[in-house]
Design a protein around this nucleic acid. Structure first.
Lengths: 163, 163
DNA sequence: GACAGTTTGTTGAACAATCAACAACTAGCA
DNA sequence: TGCTAGTTGTTGATTGTTCAACAAACTGTC
């Protein structure tokens, strides 16, 4: 069981810590702005965004869950909340009797439209306007590399034997 | 009141969405690894890390809250959970009768020591080993710029070790 | 000492996320 | 038809976070 852990060197550790801190900073700011200005938690905002971009402003639950990176359960609870507020409505799916279709209401669209400008401004303040165009390009490629690694290598843990 | 919103152009929007997705990917993977391997939510891991590095493996609640970027309430609930698991103990502060001191137990230290190598490995898989040394340097500077921009209106920074 | 103001930490309620279990339905196949 | 397997979406329980309210203790001033 004498496993040699490849600890992070100083440069790596600093990058990791700063990255974590930067993410916290950005998301704390954007979440706070959304809640403050429109009572929308960030995840709910994304749900409304995806609905607003769908044809007919409606999506089946599973599609919406995939688009928003939500579990079915989480989405079900979330849509229940949004329905209580009158921003989303559930309908039966005509082609599959198991299916439910989430439809953005006019009120929901209005809430989204009201929230969007402030959200974009906050994203600018927290991230975009803080970086040079070159850095934005770098961040784009770094993010793509991270995502590519995450989608393929998530099960690698099981194959790692430490000895 | 009708100021024209500076919407994101296509390049900026792609960078923002990819960044969000990359962060979700990294933190979902590291959180999942911690919970799977040691039952530790990420925030709790950080609490134990800070305690482990404090003199006597003990800190007053307020200091611990500051170090972990936790609110007092959140920390109070969290320490209550950790106490139930036997990883932390509360003591009265000898110099201030309002005070409570959170002390890491031997079991808590053992749990932390068991969790650390897997955590580091996951950070490598999700982030460090995915990027070139040059990209790590870029990410470092990007993160620093983000933090510098955000620190104007946000809270004090924390120190993270044992990553 | 008395007293106003602040700090410390806890509590309970409300909200959010996760997980396992479940019913309802569809699809494939004999 | 009848059977098995997989999909869809919901529910309830558990855990974690936030918020407002609170009691206890400290500080500084008179």
């Amino acid at each position: 069981m004498t496993t040699t852990t490849r600890w992070l060197n100083e440069r790596e550790q600093r990058a990791w810590r700063l990255f974590v801190q930067a993410c916290e900073s950005v998301f704390a700011a954007t979440d706070a702005q959304l809640i403050r200005d429109s009572g929308l938690p960030h995840g709910y905002y994304e749900i409304l965004v995806h609905l607003s971009e769908a044809p007919g402003r409606a999506l089946r639950m599973t599609q919406l869950a995939t688009a928003s990176a939500y579990s079915k359960s989480r989405l079900s609870h979330a849509v229940a909340r949004l329905e209580e507020r009158g921003w989303v409505e559930r309908r039966d799916c005509p082609t599959d009797r198991r299916g439910q279709i989430a439809q953005l209401t006019d009120e929901g669209f209005a809430a989204l439209a009201a929230a969007a400008p402030g959200h974009v401004e906050q994203v600018r303040r927290s991230l975009i306007d803080v970086l040079t165009p070159e850095q934005i390009e770098q961040l784009h490629e770094i993010s793509a590399a991270i995502i590519a690694a995450g989608s393929g290598g998530s099960r690698a843990c099981d194959e790692v034997h430490l000895d």
